[in-house]
Simulated scan of single mutants.
Amino acid sequence: MAILDGQAAAADLLAHVGLRAAEFTERTGRAPMLATVLVGSDPASHTYVKMKQNRCRQVGIESRRVELGQETTTEELVAAVEALSADDAVDGILLQHPVPPQIDEHLAFEAISPEKDVDGVTLASFAAMSFSEPGYASCTPGGIMRLLDAYDVDLAGKHAVVVGRSRILGKPMAMLMLERNATVTICHSRTTDLADRVAEADVVVAAVGRPELVRGAWIKPGAVVVDAGYNAGNVGDVEYGAAAERASWITPVPGGVGPMTIATLLAQTMDSAERRGA
């Protein structure tokens, strides 16, 4: 068993982003900018946004933080996002989720201009990603692909099982792996023969949001295991200890997928800045 070290791979990616940001700033006279929209008072969301702002600062990307109150309406949030989409100084937009329950999150996401959707949450981004067209991948699946590439994990001809079907993780993950010529099975918490499906997999991506749902005994010897879950107590969606005894490669929790998500967000912000120019 070997570790897919997201901390190390993210550090390499961010170092490259920093070089690109410095060159862009020197050439254009302005720093690339990521705008983050935060609605409400969820403590975890505030922590995540602060972490992303710190990473921006470290690599030379300017960050703009837009905070809206807990009682914000869908219409107010959409207006704020549309204003950022129209602002030429902004290269990328991140709407931190979850949002308060009164807000239609889908409408808010769709207010993001596709050219600034560096978090890969719009329908346009999903379509572009699925058909290998110019655009931005959802950051966690995109980060997973970058992590697998960093360790030369070849997906061509492999059977990949994705456990989870969310719009920003499970479904885009499956599309990205399919584009790399993997044969992909999508499972979820209601799959009746989940253990059997996982046992067939050469690559397992767990992204269902249930602590240790994927048991170590299910893992095919030599399989690659990517745990995209993060639950209370630093527990992932995979029973780590038992899975590590059978896997050829495995991500730790924390320190695996999480760092790659943020690094991918900033890399895609840099992509947007370069495409848009000055």
Rank of each mutant, 00 (worst) to 15 (best):
A182L: 11
G170W: 03
V184W: 05
A79N: 14
Y240L: 14
G69I: 00
R180C: 12
I250T: 09
R180Q: 07
R210Y: 15
R246M: 05
P221D: 10
K52G: 05
E26L: 14
V257F: 06
T191K: 12
R275Y: 05
A21Q: 06
T73W: 13
E75Y: 10
L265F: 13
L178N: 14
D104C: 03
L95S: 03
G69T: 05
A228C: 05
G277E: 07
A150D: 10
R215D: 02
S45H: 07
I3H: 01
P98I: 13
E239V: 11
V161L: 01
V257I: 11
M260R: 05
W249Q: 10
D5W: 10
V257L: 01
V226E: 11
H188N: 07
I61T: 08
G236M: 11
A2P: 00
Y230F: 13
A244N: 02
T47C: 10
R276C: 02
L176F: 00
R210H: 15
Q58S: 13
A21Y: 03
F131S: 15
T72D: 08
A243R: 07
A207P: 00
L14E: 02
R190M: 12
D193L: 00
A8T: 07
L19A: 15
V163G: 07
T264K: 02
I112N: 03
E274A: 08
A15N: 09
V59P: 02
I112K: 15
D91W: 11
S85L: 11
K50T: 10
S41C: 14
L94S: 00
A44Q: 12
M145L: 14
K116M: 00
A182R: 11
S166C: 04
Q268M: 06
E133L: 15
Q102G: 06
P221S: 09
A10I: 06
E200Y: 08
A22M: 08
V205E: 01
L178H: 15
L155I: 14
P32N: 05
A11R: 09
K116H: 13
V163N: 01
G142C: 14
T73S: 09
S166H: 04
V224A: 04
A89P: 11
R275P: 04
K52T: 05
I168G: 07
T28N: 06
R210F: 12
A21I: 01
K220G: 01
D42N: 15
V90Q: 15
V205Y: 06
Q96W: 00
R146C: 15
L176K: 00
D202W: 09
L194G: 04
E71K: 13
S132Q: 12
L68A: 08
N54P: 09
L147C: 07
M175C: 14
T140V: 14
S132Y: 08
G143I: 15
G277N: 07
A160N: 08
M177V: 07
A35W: 01
V198Q: 00
R167I: 12
R167H: 13
T264D: 00
A242F: 01
M175I: 11
I93M: 04
D271T: 09
G233Q: 08
